[in-house]
């Protein structure tokens, strides 16, 4: 187990300076994610143009893995439609959980999260933002979720 595999420069950078951090006024969807085990709290806000995520923000408090993962996610999904996001989530999930997963060059910067799979206790930190995004998208263009 090598710490450098987990805390790569990309992760540390996105933790220090998370992208798309903050809220969206009157979002088309929002959801709150919570990891009671470690106290991570995350809210994801999306603005949709039809099926496409036109804009996305997140805010919350969490560890470096959850913050960096959320930041990387917002960069990766902005401009993509729901189907493409679902497909991307599946590939990220494989990356996080499957030790035998072949390198996936199409993931771009998200591939920096591959070290997480060596740390099973931390997989939930990295996947929390994706589950929260899913919930935000499920609530559809007219609905604002949970609160």
């Amino acid at each position: 187990m090598d710490l450098k595999d987990l805390y790569r420069d990309v992760i540390l950078d996105h933790n220090r300076s998370p992208r798309n951090f903050g809220r969206l006024d009157s979002p088309d969807g929002r959801a709150d994610g919570h990891n009671p085990l470690c106290g991570d709290e995350l809210s994801v806000f999306v603005r949709l143009a039809g099926e496409r995520v036109e804009d996305i923000r997140f805010e919350g408090k969490g560890c470096a893995i959850s913050t960096a993962s959320a930041s990387l996610m917002t960069e990766a999904v902005k401009g993509k439609d729901r189907a493409a996001i679902r497909e991307l989530f599946e590939r990220v999930h494989t990356l996080l959980t499957r030790a035998d997963a072949p390198p996936d060059i199409t993931l771009g910067k998200l591939a920096a999260l591959s070290g997480v799979r060596e740390f099973p206790a931390r997989v939930k930190c990295a996947s929390l933002c994706w589950h929260t995004l899913n919930a935000a998208l499920e609530h559809g263009p007219a609905t604002i979720s949970t609160e």
Binding site: Y7, G39, A64, R122, C125
Partner: peptide, 27 residues
């Protein structure tokens, strides 16, 4: 400062040091 408790726990564990991290059932 600048390091979440959960990250601290992982780094300490990588050095063999077991500490509890989280809210300690006292939110």
């Amino acid at each position: 400062k600048g390091v979440h408790a959960h990250d601290l726990g992982t780094i300490l564990d990588s050095q063999g040091v077991a500490v509890r991290t989280g809210h300690h059932c006292a939110m």
